[in-house]
Design a protein around this nucleic acid. Structure first.
Lengths: 333, 333
DNA sequence: TCCTCCAATGAAAACGTTTGCATTATCCAT
DNA sequence: ATGGATAATGCAAACGTTTTCATTGGAGGA
């Protein structure tokens, strides 16, 4: 069965194809009777408008591009799902490209999307140089970076308030009676990590708590392995912390493994908190108390930023408030 | 900066735009000198070919559509990532649509993709009626269904050999000395579940093992909750099984939770196996021995089926061999 | 010198829509 | 009756490519 076009419909309905187009677009410049007749014919002939041709003339595709460091990563797949929902609600489709944490590939994917003439691109960055790399492309397609807010980069960002998240965690621990905590994470490295670490320092100072650091020097292993290694190092020469706060849930998972292997009980011997609220943390036997990044909210914010790109004035990077999710990995002391 | 088209290049290079097109497409019908000159100009002017216009005339988009029941589900997100890799390696982009397990939405998404003139559609079905629903669309766009092989449906499928997977599990348990096992799952319902259940029956008969069933009557709760409930029911009136084999990892996770809450130790008191090898199962504290569905292999198979649609003869549904993944949830008796 | 042939290039149609403008038909007020 | 406004429709250009066919120029053979 050959693809039926607007011309075929026009022939059958004995009108010009402009009229068919108008019937379909819901234009007011058409008689009610003809509209219904044409729509019926379209239905009978299984006509599906060609989005490619439509995009060609309208100069918009109703496609949103997504370049993500990973599709499979639980945080990101939830974010992508949230973006898809938001996009669909607004009549957009999603073109999803994986950069696999590879900056070169990320550039290629980005450029590919430009060629696809997508109406906007949401980037979940592959690394620290992502923003610098991609903002060198001169284009009028709106771009939003999600999950790390770099000030003065001349780009638009959606990110949670990492410092606030850190404070949320620290003050929760304080309310439980903890006074000295271990922070597992990187103090330099990505901006996200820096902000979280600084947030911890500030919150501890403000709340009169003591913090000791174990820096993840990021030797190429997975976060979970790193968390395991660092926690074990700490257990070998403990400094009296009653809680561990990890920069990410993956680190926390590793710390949990370390605790199990070293016979340290959670939360009886030490409390444990993560950051991100990836789906893992909710599992039975895991139950890690953590700080949530509300993905749906982030997706909506990114979408707004994309589609409001015409109104340049009131457009600025958006900061999302994190949320505390209490599970079973912390106890009061 | 206005979008630069092939005509702008032509004007600068002082050639016709046909020549520019030829230079870009690597056609042999062009002088080496002009080609290089044109390519240099394209580069200088940051020219990116318009895929929309190209698709319009070539009648192919180099886009693959994916309609998936969930983006976030760990099995599916891994599968989607695998599909993206395969697609990219072959010059395709992915348009990902979520059906959210909703058959109506699934139809809309499918129809949308037809309008997008994608070169093929991979469906991860939302439910039992998916195939019947979607095969009613008359289209010459190739379609492949992943993860459930319905015979004689006149469609193409990629699925693992569920019976073989079941047998793999049962004979592993037998090799560990188990002689009587509990099977948690649905015996009717989706084909996948039926095949797994039948595979268990057949394997037990063949290997001289006894099996007792707990049917998941699927009361709308999540699989994990169902697994928890069913396992608790069993623990209340045990029948001497030394191992539980669950139809899915989610069920197994629920069973594990039930065991924890009822003070049943895994694997000391009872062994536990799942099916699917979703990423959860590898986590510390979880470590569920399971049957893997190799997603990358499935993605490649689906892609082959899509792109080989012209050669109708040697094209048929593909069955993938499952693989045993041993972790710590089983012991020998 | 002339013809032939081939390589390189140009002209223009085609892909399936949307939309601005022109045209016709209809209706109401004068 | 006539004019003008308005509603409904048709015509044709435009979107940015690819590709077929025609044209040109020059090289090489006789």
């Amino acid at each position: 069965m050959d693809k039926v076009t607007i011309k075929d419909i026009a022939k059958v309905a004995d009108v010009s194809y402009a009229t068919v187009s108008r019937a379909l677009s819901g234009s007011s410049e058409i008689g009610e009777a003809t509209r219904e007749r044409i729509l019926r014919i379209c239905d009978e002939m299984n006509y599906i408008p060609d989005s490619v041709a439509r995009s060609m003339v309208k100069k918009r595709t109703n496609i949103l591009g997504v370049v993500t460091a990973s599709i499979n990563n639980p945080f990101m797949s939830e974010l992508i799902e949230a973006i898809e929902i938001t996009a669909r609600e607004n009549g957009y489709n999603l073109m999803v490209c994986n950069s696999a944490y590879d900056l070169e590939l990320e550039k290629r994917q980005f450029s590919l999307l430009l060629g696809r003439r997508v109406d906007g691109i949401i980037v979940i960055p592959a690394g620290k140089e992502t923003v610098a790399n991609l903002s060198s492309y001169s284009t009028d397609i709106p771009v939003v970076y999600v999950s790390e807010n770099i000030p003065d980069a001349g780009q638009f960002f959606v990110a949670i308030d990492n410092a606030a998240g850190a404070k949320l965690a620290v003050s929760y621990l304080q309310s439980l009676g903890h006074r000295k905590i271990l922070y597992l994470g990187r103090r330099e490295g990505s901006l996200t990590h820096r902000l979280r670490a600084e947030g911890v320092v500030a919150a501890c100072r403000e709340l009169g708590m003591e913090v000791v650091f174990k820096d993840n020097d990021n030797d190429g292993k997975s976060s979970m392995e790193a968390g395991c290694r660092l926690a074990k190092e700490y257990f070998r020469s403990p400094e009296g912390c009653t809680a561990i706060f990890c920069a990410t849930d993956a680190l926390a998972l590793g710390a949990m493994q370390a605790a199990d292997e070293d016979g340290v009980r959670i939360p009886e011997d030490i409390s444990l908190m993560g950051f991100d609220n990836i789906s893992f943390t909710a599992l039975p036997r895991i139950g890690i108390t953590t700080i949530e990044q509300p993905q749906l909210e982030m997706a909506r914010a990114a979408f707004e930023l994309i589609t409001r790109s015409s109104e340049e004035e009131n457009r600025q990077s958006i900061s999302i408030e994190p949320r505390l999710v209490v599970r079973t990995s912390c106890r009061s002391v």
